[in-house]
């Protein structure tokens, strides 16, 4: 089968990879680039475990062919922590027990990160609505909502501390 060379900016790094056109972005991230933090839960675009940011917007990497991402920037869960420090969203999930088995978590972290960029002070209802495209079978969601609220508070603190 023919292959195509694609160029991705993954978590800020330029990556060039030779892929078959039918390969999904999720599989390329996981199997070709070693970024196994992006998980495959349903592979039909419902569970959201595979959510990554494509040019800053959340997409299902199980519904996107890798060749479609050619020339674009991809942020995965591995790219959320900065300089070894957990992002406020990551820290919020830890503080509020927003994860149990952790399998769906990368997708939630990505979606929540995007939510707080768009809406830094969401209500609980808005958080639930924003996360409704991600499924979690362990937590019952309540602590995930708490985690996003925690992150929103943290971000607000950080922003007010800035001169």
């Amino acid at each position: 089968m023919t292959t195509r060379q694609i160029r991705l900016t993954v978590n800020g790094q330029e990556r060039t990879v030779e892929v078959e056109p039918r390969w999904l972005l999720a599989d390329v991230l996981r199997e070709r680039l070693g970024l196994t933090g992006t998980h495959l839960g349903c592979e039909h675009g419902v569970c959201g475990a595979c959510t990554v940011l494509l040019d800053g917007r959340p997409v299902r990497s199980c519904l996107l062919l890798a060749v479609q991402a050619d020339g674009h920037a991809v942020t995965t869960v591995e790219g959320l922590a900065q300089d070894g420090a957990l992002s406020p969203v990551q820290e919020g999930f830890r503080q509020e027990h927003g994860l149990q088995c952790g399998f769906c978590t990368p997708g939630f972290l990505i979606t929540a990160t995007y939510l707080l960029e768009q809406n830094p002070q969401p209500t609980r209802e808005e958080i639930r609505e924003a996360l409704s495209g991600n499924l979690c079978r362990c937590t019952g969601y309540q602590n995930i909502v708490n985690a996003v609220e925690w992150a929103a508070r943290k971000l607000a603190e950080q922003n007010s501390a800035k001169p």
Partner: peptide, 21 residues
Amino acid sequence: RTRVEDARLVQGQGRYVSDVA
């Protein structure tokens, strides 16, 4: 107490069976 498991898992450093190759 918060969990010792979480720092790995929230950074995508968990190792599930499908990650083993």
